[in-house]
């Protein structure tokens, strides 16, 4: 019988580690429960980011979150990449290693985007095989995140929630349930986010993600550039109740404010996990609200780019 969170601990409320906050964290040692790193930003570097990471890893639990595994691609798995991932996880004592249910490129190219899969039996079989290989290489359960997506395929024969559910159950992988992504995709693909959360294999859920997104009126884009909106918090309340509570992380990747602002945002989660037994029923209409047009003008001024763009700028004289 599966243990909750596949046996992983609930390590509380964490933040994505970003270079702009290095100095604050090292100087003030804020009371953050844990940090999540973008794996690719630390795998090949021997510069300051790696040095800072090793210091932070001595003081805080670290979890690794990647954007380049391309678990759903039909290109061969990159075993060199996997070995580097494994080595970094060992070096920093990562509690778990996650990536996304997506593909990032084929024919040896990399779009550096989290591209969606058609959800059908063939894709499921293909992805299951690759998850098993990755887990063998890493010698640990992989944790996979539901992506935000902007298209659906005519070749899909099952819902995303069914695909994610079966992938997790058949491989024993963990799930990083991104509550904001559930909301974004539910708006974009006209599904009920509550049903999605209710259908997950809750004991496989190891971690939650929270983030801000951009509402363009006709659709939402997962931009990680602002506060978590109320309907996402309400989904988080539900997800917490369904899972019994798992480690929760806030991502903020664009227009990143001062550290205390980001920290305060994740601490808001306490309001929702402390009162999770309050009726979520009364909040349900909020989940299903369609995006309004109030923010569209702002957002449409430039091309709105979905997460991720994980690049560390050099420090030079």
């Amino acid at each position: 019988m599966l243990e909750p969170r596949l046996g992983h601990p609930n390590i509380g409320l964490g933040l994505g580690l970003r270079t702009v906050h290095y100095q604050h964290i090292l100087q003030h040692e804020p009371k953050v429960d844990w940090f999540e790193i973008i794996s690719e930003n630390y795998m090949d570097t021997e510069g300051r980011p790696r040095y800072v990471l090793e210091q932070i890893a001595e003081r805080y639990p670290i979890v690794m979150h990647g954007v380049s595994m391309s678990i759903g691609s039909t290109d061969p798995l990159d075993f060199d990449y996997l070995q580097k991932l494994k080595q970094l996880a060992a070096t920093v004592g990562a509690l778990w290693v996650s990536d996304h249910i997506c593909w990032t490129g084929v024919a040896s190219l990399n779009a550096h985007d989290l591209l969606p899969l058609p959800y059908n039996e063939a894709t499921l079989k293909h992805t299951i095989e690759r998850v098993r290989i990755v887990q063998d290489v890493l010698e640990r359960s992989l944790v996979l995140e539901n992506p935000s997506s902007y298209v659906t395929f005519a070749d899909s024969t099952m819902s995303e929630s069914e695909f994610v559910n079966r992938l997790a159950v058949e491989t024993g992988c963990g799930l990083l349930l991104d509550v904001n992504n559930v909301y974004v995709s539910s708006v974009n693909h006209d599904f009920d986010p509550v049903e999605y959360l209710e259908s997950m294999p809750h004991k496989n859920v190891v971690q939650f993600h929270l983030a801000g997104h951009t509402n363009l009126g006709t659709h939402c884009i997962d931009t990680h550039d602002g506060h978590v909106i109320d309907p996402v918090w309400e989904l988080y309340r539900l997800a917490h109740r369904l899972t019994g509570g798992v480690s929760t992380l806030l991502e903020w990747d664009v227009k990143i404010p001062e550290f205390p602002v980001v920290h305060a945002e994740v601490l808001k989660a306490k309001q929702f996990i402390g009162a999770e037994t309050e009726s979520t029923e009364s909040q349900k209409p909020g989940f299903l609200e369609k995006p309004g047009f109030s923010t569209a003008e702002d957002a449409a001024a430039t091309i709105t780019v979905p997460h991720p763009a994980a690049y560390v700028v050099a420090e030079a004289e």
Binding site: A111, H112, D113, Y150, V151, T152, A154, H219, I303, A309
Partner: peptide, 29 residues
Amino acid sequence: QIITRSQTQDSIERLQVYGNAYFARLVEV
């Protein structure tokens, strides 16, 4: 036949999210 539409966007508009983002993201880098 490949990309389905949503209630608010047609298939081309949906694909454009990825098409627009591809160059914009990498140019930004």
